[in-house]
């Protein structure tokens, strides 16, 4: 296969597979900022791994342990006025993993509706001559709407509460977004207790193309995500650790429609005990605002 063809197929695969890093901002941070505006987004998130870590070291995986998680998110948002929004995110989860049970590798899977997240972004906007910016506080709650049956269930049965502080700054050709968030995870069913999580996301983007007449354009962004999750427990063992991921984001928009594709690669991981890597993440979504 020629280099050009390889690049073409790789890029196509990327566009087809690529998660919104804006974990607390369904659709986008950008919209809808208008009174009585609403929107929804469907996005597919996929991650998989067969890399085993002990602490921050990659170790052999002779028993072929692995996992993959595919999630389709339905996200919606309503803007009461530019300062107050209400959002929801409902996942449909399809998960598979190979884990050790009494020293033997066993395949487990689970699928179904997951746990719904409801948030209320509260924003303060500053419009300048040639820029706009906002700071936001978003309280969130994750409710146990997902099933907890089976060994690898789509829900964990816990009620979790979160909060995020974010800031964004935008000019015609530059976009910057910073989000610091914390999830206080409750105790779930089947002995599951995810550790509390703190995270920080940075999105820096360039706006290389825009057509005023058709309202069509492209954003190219780069994302850096840091996560620290306390030691926890799920049905397969210990959870929690630290990781730093990064990767590109491409956004195409036309009028009130936006397509976003994203890839993230874990640059650094440090897990409690021995765990599978969080894995590479691909995400693609389409959103509409009205």
């Amino acid at each position: 296969m020629s280099y050009q063809r390889y690049f073409f197929y790789s890029f196509g695969l990327f566009v087809m597979l690529a998660k919104s890093v804006l974990a607390h901002q369904p659709v986008m941070d950008m919209a809808p900022r208008w009174q009585d505006g609403y929107g929804f987004q469907i996005r597919q998130e996929y991650r998989s791994s067969d890399e085993l870590f002990s602490g921050d070291s990659n170790v052999d995986n002779p028993l072929g342990l692995d996992k993959s998680v595919s999630t389709i998110w339905l996200e919606g948002i309503y803007t009461f006025k530019r300062e107050v929004r209400l959002s929801f995110k409902i996942p449909y989860v399809d998960k598979k993993r190979t884990v050790l049970r009494n020293g033997t590798p066993i395949q487990e899977s689970g699928s179904g509706l997951g746990d719904i997240i409801i948030g209320m972004p509260l924003k303060s906007y500053t419009n300048q001559e040639s820029s706009t910016s906002n700071i936001a506080f978003t309280p969130s709650i994750r409710l146990p709407t997902g099933s907890t049956n089976g060994n690898y269930s789509p829900g964990d049965g816990s009620i979790d509460v979160g909060a995020s502080f974010s800031a964004s700054f935008e000019k015609a050709n530059l976009y910057q977004y910073y989000d610091l968030f914390y999830w206080k995870n409750g105790e779930g069913d089947n002995g599951i207790k995810q550790g509390d999580e703190i995270g920080f996301d940075v999105n820096v983007g360039w706006h290389p193309y825009h057509d005023n007449l058709t309202n069509e354009g492209v954003f190219l962004m780069w994302d850096v995500s840091a996560r620290v999750e306390e030691r926890g427990q799920d049905t397969a063992g210990i959870t929690g650790g630290k990781r730093l991921s990064t990767g590109p984001v491409i956004v195409y928009y036309q009028g009130g429609m936006m397509i976003r594709a994203e890839y993230k690669y874990p640059l650094y991981e440090d897990v409690y005990d021995t765990q599978l890597s969080f894995g590479q993440e691909f995400n693609i979504g389409i959103g509409f605002v009205f």
């Binding site: 208008w34 419009n127 040639s130 706009t132 976009y175 007449l213 309202n215 009130g256 936006m258 605002v289």
Partner: peptide
């Protein structure tokens, strides 16, 4: 207008304005 730097963000503004009855809607798309 202060802050208009992105048409996707200003989609609602354009939508609100387009409803005004005194515009010539044969123009600008």
């Amino acid at each position: 207008v202060k802050g208009v730097v992105c048409s996707f963000c200003a989609y609602g503004t354009e939508k609100n304005l387009s409803k005004l009855s005194f515009l010539d809607k044969s123009q600008y798309g």
